[in-house]
Amino acid sequence: MTATGTARDEGSIKYFGERSQALGFPLTDLSTLDAALQPFADAVLARYGKIVNRLSFVEADTLVDPAWLEPLVHLDVGDTVTFTRRGINPERTLTGFVCGYEHRLTRDNWSTTIFTTTSTRSI
């Protein structure tokens, strides 16, 4: 017998409709113990049940700002990126965790697109 863990955020569903397909979900055919399924689903819901506004990517370029060099050298999945959108009122600061990146190195230039996933609720 397979077992299932299901978690719903009724408030979010009422506004956005049921959203069950992001990030590779639903997850099926796992080897998780029956008793661990529901806590797993609850933890995912707590993290992603109210994610709308997010920091998607940041472009880094050593020609635009040479100080990028050190962070790019040490850049790794799991790093934290904090960005404040200025020029809007009120200003908005969002935080993302690095989940991927694309380096482009040519002579005298190192540019990188940093992709992030957020943990910030925004509904």
Binding site: A3, T4, G5, F16, A22, L23, A60, P71, T117
Partner: peptide, 30 residues
């Protein structure tokens, strides 16, 4: 650093979308 506010980025993507929204989480095992 060219800014005392942080590293200067020429392009930043702040998105409002449902790409990471999971309000119905379904997990099952084998």
């Amino acid at each position: 650093p060219t800014s005392n506010l942080g590293l200067l980025s020429p392009s930043v993507g702040l998105f409002g979308d449902m790409n990471e929204l999971l309000n119905l989480v379904v997990i099952n095992n084998k």
